[in-house]
Design a protein around this nucleic acid. Structure first.
Lengths: 252, 252
DNA sequence: TCAAAAATAATCATAAAAAATCAATAAAAA
DNA sequence: TTTTTATTGATTTTTTATGATTATTTTTGA
């Protein structure tokens, strides 16, 4: 195992368990204490964890930082969600993608798929760059406007005006929070406004999110859970599934 | 196998497996360690992977990766033109940039300048990415629409609608052809249409082009030379200068 | 508060890998 | 063709990662 890989794994391990002792990591990764300590030191330097005397604790993830970094603990989960989402897309569909790394993953999957005749609308510059750089021949529409630093999503009235021109078959919406009370919610007003407009113009709406987004309420609400056609996620968490399905919400 | 081809293969291999040791790559591609290391070095330079002591890890796909603009010819000339153009921009200006590598150079210069309070309108995704990734705080407006493969410029009616909302101080227009008969011309209808709209909405218009663009007529005309405020170029070619100035055209 | 225990930090040796250098070869240009 | 340039692999020097050892610091409990 590469040292960098091991550091990533250690971080994931910590993220899953919230914290761990050095002893535990020594046994689990079968390396010496020196190595574990050096790795923890490195992760702490990157502000991903905080060292304690006999181990380490993960830092609260900063929601706005890191679009898709190597240390993103949900990378694998996002990939699963993206693959699942892909199966809902048919040849010739007119789809919309929200911003965010889960939808970016979906864009990657679309590029690697056999789908043809797709039209793809998005306000995310990232996604457009990816789609353009692929050798695939999709019809791409970039709902431009004021691009946000960090997330590379265009917000404001301009993208909304562009979105109004279209009738969308399926909207794949990467979200920041999913909860019974708060519905689908975002961290940013601008992004939620754009999202709401796409929502209005779409025949089918799929919220896509890894399990870490569940039971989280962010400040900008887009819609109720009951307004979704399905929530596509990675986990067959029976607790969530039961709870949501009781309210007639389709979880895939 | 060509070296560039092998590098791409190595990258694909790494993408599939997320990471690999140098040893592994040596065996798989049947080349020496030196070669593998040089290739990895190159891939790391392009920000596609991260080197580790005994191998490499792919970078999570993010915006910075992959976008490699081809600054083929006239690099130095374009830089000169960009630097000259920069001197026409004042703090607080609302400027527009056309697509193309000369304007991309200008965007680079703007990022490195001391200018403050700029608003920058463009239909080029490239330029927006560059400006967003800098640590500068400009107001950026991306006139989105249908992005063209290869040039990353948005064309069609949508960017035009966005452009109509603004009153622009200065338009820096990278052009494909400059000639007495053909005026300012472009290779692409879509791009020239967008350009014409910016032209109409701008108080001052600067055509920017290295000397290779002179005496060339492309199929899509944007405006007459007499409608320009100045042509900014690299060469003090007395022949051009005299010829153009005789017709009252300002060449800088 | 102090001392024992435990963990960390610092130091060092070693093995492995990478970088630098150089010569041979292949490809491209004159 | 010859000359130049780029690529490659072998050789060496340097750097890095690791675990063992020792010193220092922190924790804990009497």
């Amino acid at each position: 195992m590469l040292s960098e890989e091991r550091r990533m794994e250690i971080f994931r391990y910590l993220k899953r368990k919230s914290s761990a002792t050095t002893e535990e990591l020594i046994n689990h990764f079968e390396v010496s204490g020196s190595t574990v300590r050096r790795d923890l030191e490195e992760l702490a330097r990157k502000k991903l964890i905080t060292r304690t005397h006999n181990g380490a604790v993960v830092n609260a993830p900063n929601v706005e930082t890191g679009f898709l970094m190597n240390y993103n603990s949900m990378l694998e989960e996002k990939k699963i969600v993206a693959k699942k989402s892909l199966s809902f897309i048919n040849n010739g569909d007119f789809i919309a993608l929200s911003g965010g790394s889960t939808c970016y993953m979906l864009a990657t999957e679309i590029c690697n798929s056999e789908l043809v005749g797709l039209s793809i609308l998005t306000n995310s510059i990232n996604h457009v760059m990816l789609l353009l750089q692929s050798d695939r021949d999709f019809e791409i529409i970039l709902a431009g406007g004021i691009p946000r630093k960090g997330t590379y999503e265009c917000v404001g009235e301009m993208p909304i005006q562009i979105i109004r021109r279209f009738n969308i078959d399926k909207y794949f919406m990467g979200v920041d929070g999913i909860s019974m009370e708060g519905g689908i919610s975002f961290n940013n007003i601008g992004e939620s406004e754009v999202s709401r407009e796409i929502f209005k113009r779409s025949r089918q709406i799929f919220a896509i999110a890894d399990h870490s987004k569940f039971s989280i309420t962010r400040h900008s609400k887009v819609c109720e859970l009951s307004e979704l056609d399905a929530i596509i996620t990675d986990e067959s968490n029976e607790l969530f599934r039961e709870k949501y399905q009781k309210y007639g919400i389709n979880i895939v």
